[in-house]
Design a protein around this nucleic acid. Structure first.
Lengths: 107, 107
DNA sequence: ACTATATATAGATGTATATCTATATGCGAG
DNA sequence: CTCGCATATAGATATACATCTATATATAGT
């Protein structure tokens, strides 16, 4: 385990909100502009802008500008790395963080 | 996509903290008592107790009491379900939430 | 029964976050 | 250049959370 908990925690925190999970679900179908994403929610446009900023700051979503529209899309490399991180996290490996199991005081 | 964003967001939120990621890493090597987990951290025992409560409330960690010790272990079923949820989330499927792509106002 | 140890709970505090309204910025059409 | 639309930013507010100290509870050993 590479133990880069901080960076992965940041990505995981970014997707730890039901609305942002739904946004990712939407983006999994391909890139979308903000106005299109907003149609799926009840909150206001600035709130969506906030959520998109959180997702972009974590790196799991990228964007491109085309005229007055901003298009958002998943960063598939980051997505795949996150899945791999989680799969490694829950799988016991040789480089286990607590290989000093014998040190445990309670037996 | 089954769209149970709320329950999964709760689990994801539970693991969205660097310390709790490290706890999960530790538990991936097998069950551990609280005192053993605590040795890997700088914070106090009540803080660990708080983190374990968050992980237990989300269902991703279970515990059993043995004498004065509490042993914690990963709920592998929940772990696997979470990985599957995330893999489905980032993968475009037929039941895509926004199959009404044509409705998008910006083309 | 007394004491030491393991863990949980209560309450306080500072920080982060989700949301809103109001406003700014940037762009295309006329 | 001006207007309307898409998006971002600023600032406010209420809630959630990570952490601490102090204390309670439970268990084991003497």
């Amino acid at each position: 385990m590479n133990q880069n908990y901080d960076e992965n925690a940041k990505i995981i925190k970014a997707i730890s909100d039901p609305s942002r999970l739904k946004i990712i679900d939407i983006l999994s179908c391909g890139e979308r502009c903000a106005c299109d994403i907003l149609q799926h929610f009840d909150f206001t446009q600035p709130t969506l802008s906030h959520h998109m900023k959180v997702l972009m700051d974590s790196g799991i979503v990228d964007s491109k500008k085309d005229g007055q529209w901003s298009y958002y899309f998943l960063n598939s490399s980051k997505c795949n790395k996150l899945i791999l991180f989680l799969m490694n996290l829950i799988t016991e490996t040789d480089e286990c963080i607590c290989k000093d199991k014998s040190k445990c005081e309670c037996k």
